[in-house]
């Protein structure tokens, strides 16, 4: 099932709402499926500051199981934490807290530890390097943070994993997962000419004019005075930005707010909903494809959810075209 979903995409990110959401299980499933299909794959991760102490002290057991021939880009000091037999292909000069990123080829099956670079530009270079060494498809193990949700700059498609470890409150987990999915599903703006026209943090566009604004409050004034229906926001969109925009009041109705991509929208679910209720909508310059949402009803902290109820609730909260899968049913190899 998962393999069919990823098949058309040359690069796929796995993203988790929290630890133990089942992200690694998903990745292992995909690795095994690709191996069964005879594909050579490449693997790396978006830096992993959040897990750094675990990884550095080695208390975290490596969990990703790869097959002979896999191309892996990971930090020098993460190599001895795995147990594959390997061939060193390249050292990249990209720094991480665990040393420089090296590209290696697995010469046996076995476990690896991924610790890739944190900059998207570097990930893009790594993808190309891995392809150069024969990787037909690249998987990027995303970090456990909202910041890396669906980075279109890095991968064409993404799989979002959520689970009971996120919160004891099932409603909260479902709501926040749906919000994350909604951001990843934002449509690409139809105004294809936009990206060239925006240098300012906020640009308010009317049919005839473009107004660059440095603050959200200035943008709100412009939207009101010009009755503008289009706003472009460069970089991150914060709660403070939205709260300032709310001062435009009724003028927000019908407004299209264009963010660079879904990962830049860092607003709370509450403010996001309020923005939509005001009649405004977000679009993005670059979109990613959310292939599936996986759910894990087991909590690492003991407060498990009811399997059927959780699966059902997430299915109802996520738009119908995105499959929602029980991660445990998609059993992994390792």
């Amino acid at each position: 099932m998962l393999y069919d979903l990823i098949k058309p995409h040359s690069s796929v990110s796995t993203v988790g709402m929290c630890k133990n959401a089942g992200k690694t299980t998903v990745l292992n499933r995909l690795i095994a499926d690709c191996a069964a299909a005879g594909e050579t794959i490449g693997l790396t991760s978006i830096g992993r500051d959040g897990e750094r102490s675990d990884v550095v002290t080695g208390t975290k057991k490596p969990e990703i199981y790869v097959f002979d021939g896999t191309i892996i880009a990971t930090a020098e000091e993460a190599l001895p934490l795995g147990d594959i037999s390997r061939e060193i292909l390249e050292t990249t000069g990209m720094p991480t807290p665990m040393g420089e990123v090296a590209v290696v080829r697995a010469k046996s099956d076995g476990f690896i530890q991924l610790a890739g670079p944190s900059m998207t530009a570097q990930l893009r270079i790594l993808k190309a390097k891995m392809a150069g060494f024969g990787a037909e498809r690249v998987f990027i193990d995303g970090a456990l943070s909202r910041k890396s949700l669906a980075m279109p700059a890095v991968s064409d498609a993404a799989i979002l994993s959520t689970g009971a470890s996120y919160s004891r409150d099932i409603e909260k987990t479902v709501r926040d997962t749906a919000h994350a999915a909604a951001l990843m599903l934002l449509p690409k703006t139809e105004r294809a000419d936009l990206s060239r026209r925006t240098a300012a943090k906020f640009t308010v566009l009317t049919d005839s004019d473009a107004f660059g604004c440095e603050t959200a409050a200035d943008a709100a004034d412009r939207i009101r005075s010009e009755k503008a229906k289009l706003l472009i926001i460069r970089g991150g969109v914060t709660d403070a930005n939205l709260e300032a925009l709310f001062s435009a009041g009724k003028a927000l109705s019908g407004l299209e707010a264009v963010a660079e991509d879904g990962s830049r929208i860092l607003v709370s679910e509450k403010n996001y909903s309020k923005f939509l209720r005001a009649g405004a909508a977000f679009t993005v310059l670059e979109s990613t494809k959310l292939l599936a949402v996986t759910v894990n009803p087991f909590s690492a902290y003991g407060a498990h959810y009811d399997k059927e109820r959780f699966l059902d609730a997430v299915r109802r909260a996520i738009p119908g075209e995105v499959p929602v899968l029980d991660v445990m049913k998609e059993e992994s190899y390792a």
Binding site: F67, D68, S85, K107, S108, D109
Partner: peptide, 12 residues
Amino acid sequence: RKSRKAVDLALR
């Protein structure tokens, strides 16, 4: 390495 290869294949 030869033994390792054999075990890998058996596992697969």
